[in-house]
């Protein structure tokens, strides 16, 4: 899975009919230091995430293993919203305000 930040919403009226009702979000890959990288992915949302949140995305066939993406033409799904990220013993991100915040 990869670390990402939700940076936008994708609305498409003309799409595969099976995708009707599925929430599509634009996510930007983040590095270990929460730095935005240049790669973006359109991911289905399975946990109610919103713009600005740091999330975890699964890709490939595994992305279809949630109730909202079952049997759909989807290869990326947001399956967790990050509360705390610790790398080599240092807190790199915490959803609660008092800890380190994400550099936007």
């Amino acid at each position: 899975m990869f670390l990402a930040k939700v940076v936008g919403t994708v609305v498409a009226t003309q799409k595969d009919p099976k995708l009707a009702g599925l929430k599509l979000l634009l996510v930007q890959h983040l590095s270990l230091d929460l730095e935005p990288t240049k790669s973006f992915v359109v991911a289905a949302d399975s946990v109610g995430s919103g713009t600005g949140e740091v999330v975890v995305c699964a890709t490939g066939s595994s992305a279809r293993l949630t109730e909202v993406t079952d049997k759909l033409p989807v290869d990326a799904v947001i399956m967790a919203i990050v509360d705390t990220l610790e790398i080599n013993g240092a807190i790199k991100y915490s959803k609660s305000p008092e800890a380190a915040s994400v550099k936007s």
Binding site: V47, S49, I81, L85, N88
Partner: peptide
């Protein structure tokens, strides 16, 4: 293993 990540809001299978 270089780090850990906690998430309360996640897909129920986790």
């Amino acid at each position: 293993v270089i780090g850990s990540l906690w998430a309360t809001q996640k897909h129920h299978s986790f």
